[in-house]
Write a protein that binds this DNA or RNA. Structure first.
Lengths: 213, 213
DNA sequence: CCCCAATAGTTAGCTGCCTAATCATCGGGG
DNA sequence: CCCCGATGATTAGGCAGCTAACTATTGGGG
């Protein structure tokens, strides 16, 4: 059979190249369009990255007869939305180097720590569960970027070590990686960056209000 | 056999309550601790939500002999980190109401649009792929919060409609939901919120620098 | 000196998100 | 009038994150 015409057989050997994120096929629509709605007619601006709208927030709050501040709601919703958006952009970014955000963070943390660390420490420092670290290490070990070695002091423990190949990967991607990160915040002045860091930290601290109880 | 002692049998019927996010078992460690490292000894402050550090960013940039601005790198990395953090908090929040962030966003968008919308429109407006919308609708339909109906005009199309049960769910959760969102940004003054919205939008727009090419 | 609670790591199963491929239908150009 | 490209929706497969449960080891208290 011709290799190209096979339908489901191609999946049989799991021969899909890992991390082939290229971009969404749902192309962005026009800047502005009329939206017909059962309740009202409204202009919906789809200016990139600025959804949802203050109008939407206001409408929702009013709809349920609450006295919440629409602007406050908007900030919260935008942050959640922005987080997902930036997270996806980061995933596309790291896919270039055959990594994911999680795998890169683990590699970089290992490098910063001298090349050795236990999975538990990694989980704590990366702020993910130990199970996630197991999964990340599995993938990285398969590609030869890290290795696992039983701990010398603790019979239960393991040590993750950065391999030469892993260190090389980090070195190779560094110029483009840091260049793109810099470009990402290039639209802000130094003063604005300082303000942004402060406000971001305070909102993140406030986001515990979502999970608390 | 006693229902409590069963090991894997409990999974047999897939009788796991959906969305039982309660919090991580990796409890936070102390505020400050000494970290021994092959290269250096350093104080590692784990002040909640303020990792990674400017020092880490500076060290990394220097390590590879680049001339990137450490503060710019820090802003980018913090935003990515904060996005994941806030995203997880949101997931915990929505789990309270038997929803996920994606499912809530779909429901709310439907409600705001008069209760009817095609999956393609939902995908475009929520900024996710159509495949994701299919998955979200599957879950919501299973719980009776939305229904699918073939489109009247287009033989290919489907219309997702908000059911009475779905509208009720939104109504029930509204007070607590908006209250928590408001609390989340309660640490910011109105002026600061305005600034934050502006800066956030600009950084999100800049985050295209990660995915572009 | 032994036992048991705490800890380290893994595994199983879930969700959300993605891309690529598939199937059905619409609709305009030759 | 028919055909083929464009579009709507789903399916299949993959990764990352989570919780809960399981196994193995450590180490302190009775």
């Amino acid at each position: 059979m011709t290799a190209r015409r096979t339908r489901y057989a191609a999946y049989g050997g799991s021969t899909r190249p890992p991390y082939t994120i290229t971009g969404t096929d749902t192309r962005r629509h026009l800047d502005t369009e009329i939206v017909s709605c059962h309740i009202c007619f409204m202009m919906k601006s789809v200016t990139n990255g600025e959804a949802p709208t203050l109008d939407q927030a206001r409408r929702q709050v009013e709809h349920y007869g609450l006295d919440a501040d629409p602007q406050a709601v908007l900030v919260a919703v935008r942050l959640i939305s922005a987080g997902a958006r930036v997270g996806r952009a980061a995933e596309v970014h790291f896919a270039r180097f055959g990594l994911s955000t999680g795998r890169y963070r683990l590699l970089a943390d290992l490098e910063d720590h001298g090349g050795e660390k236990s999975p538990s420490r990694l989980a704590a420092d990366l702020d993910v569960s130990r199970a996630t670290v197991t999964g990340l290490l599995d993938g990285l070990e398969r590609e030869g970027l890290v290795a696992r070695r039983p701990s010398a002091e603790d019979g239960r423990g393991t040590v993750a070590i950065l391999t030469a190949r892993g260190a090389q990967r980090l070195r190779d991607m560094a110029p483009e990686h840091f260049g793109r990160l810099e470009a990402m915040v290039g639209g802000l002045s130094v003063a604005e960056r300082t303000v942004f860091l402060d406000l971001l930290a305070r909102v993140v601290r406030g986001s515990e209000a979502l999970a608390d109880d």
